[in-house]
Simulated assay, not measured.
Amino acid sequence: MHAPEEGKLRVAFTELIDLAAENVGGQALLASDEFFAGKENLLKPGRGIFIPGKFTENGKWMDGWESRRKRVPGHDWCILKLGMPGVIRGVDIDTNHFLGNFPEYASVDALAVEGEPTPEALAAATWTPILPQLKLQGGTRNLFPIASDQRWTHLRLNIFPDGGVARFRVHGEVRPDFERLSRADGTVDLAAAENGGTVMACNDAFFGPKDNLILPGRAANMGEGWETRRKRVLPGFDWIVVKLAVPGTVQRVEVDTAYFKGNFPDTCSIEGCSLREPVVDFANAHDIAWTELLPRTKLQADHRHYFESELAAKGPFTHVRLKIYPDGGVSRLRVHGRPA
């Protein structure tokens, strides 16, 4: 399950959203030791960087979580709160830049708890092992599938006996409070990742990952949107398909091109469909009956576009497809509606 080159990694679960990422609300709450480098680095974007010659008063500066060398029996651990509770399909324990100081082994435990327990209460809780103690390699992404269908809210990363981990990714499927969504009196964002929306597929995500389109909040920069490469064969368009959290009728749509100025799409359109059976390959699913939701419409740079009266149909839909002409970047897509 290991590969030294990130570009060659094609493991299915890595296509799923990172439930623990800092930008979706994930938090590193408590660690047994963080002498050389802080636990909060585990959930930051990217794979971590290395700066030769940069030191702190405790030693070499490292972009990750690193504990001191253990001189007594035991192991180190870090407790993390998922930004979006859900079912975990796999973890990525990335030891990038940690070569002579990576842990020899790691394991993962999980916990499902409501409310906001203190870190100390979490440390004393009874945890469920979801990944046994397995051997790690240094300077690479260590990818491990998880065979658990339970919804979890917190994880504990255990390293044996000590050392450094650059990043910890928790790929899975969001499991929100569906009863709350069903009881909603007003509209809810049916596409939002935190509500259970899922990006199923897109034809291109060269510059910006597909999941960025439905993340919480507005993007902080251009790199936090979905962006395709420049299209050299025209005419044509790029597309992305989002499965709604629950089937619903659409009342209002927002297309946000924040920070996209010389590379925003010229126009866009949106379609919806209602599917009873799951579709594996949207790129080749030619028999789907798509209904026009938003006709092809002119877009502006760095602008929040709201569409309500322009909507040609309201559903109910299970999926929506955003089409951008001919290419470019979109920061966020919001699909406000009512659960059917």
Rank of each mutant, 00 (worst) to 15 (best):
G196A: 10
R338C: 08
G197A: 07
T267P: 00
A21T: 02
T291M: 03
D149W: 01
D204V: 04
P295C: 04
F307I: 00
N142H: 12
G315P: 02
A106W: 02
I159P: 00
L9G: 00
V335A: 03
L275H: 06
I51Y: 14
A123L: 13
G197D: 04
G46Y: 14
C268P: 06
R276V: 02
R68Q: 09
D287H: 10
K243R: 15
T153P: 07
L16W: 07
G26C: 11
G172Y: 07
E6R: 13
T297V: 06
A340F: 06
W127K: 08
A123D: 14
L244H: 03
I214V: 13
E194D: 08
W127E: 09
R156L: 04
A110G: 09
G208A: 09
I240W: 01
V199G: 02
Y259P: 01
E179N: 11
L190W: 03
A3M: 13
I240N: 00
F35I: 06
E116D: 15
T153M: 10
G139A: 10
F264Q: 01
V246T: 15
P247R: 10
F55S: 10
A20Q: 06
K261S: 12
V11H: 11
D63V: 07
A37D: 12
P216H: 06
A28Q: 12
V174T: 13
D18W: 04
P316V: 00
F282C: 07
N23K: 10
K60T: 13
E227W: 05
E254D: 14
G186A: 11
T95Y: 04
K54W: 13
E227V: 08
T318D: 01
V335R: 03
R276E: 10
G115F: 12
L122K: 10
V253F: 06
Y306G: 00
R321F: 00
F307A: 02
N195M: 03
L311H: 07
D63P: 08
L215A: 10
G164D: 02
E254W: 08
N158I: 01
S309M: 05
R10L: 08
D302F: 00
H2Q: 12
R167P: 05
T297Y: 01
F207R: 00
V253N: 03
R47K: 15
D76K: 06
V72E: 14
A125G: 09
W65M: 05
E120I: 08
K60R: 15
G272E: 07
G25T: 09
K314G: 00
P176V: 05
A285G: 10
A125W: 03
S107M: 06
G59C: 08
T56L: 11
I79A: 13
V165Q: 03
L294A: 02
D327H: 08
P103M: 08
K323N: 15
D238K: 04
A28E: 14
V199K: 01
D149G: 13
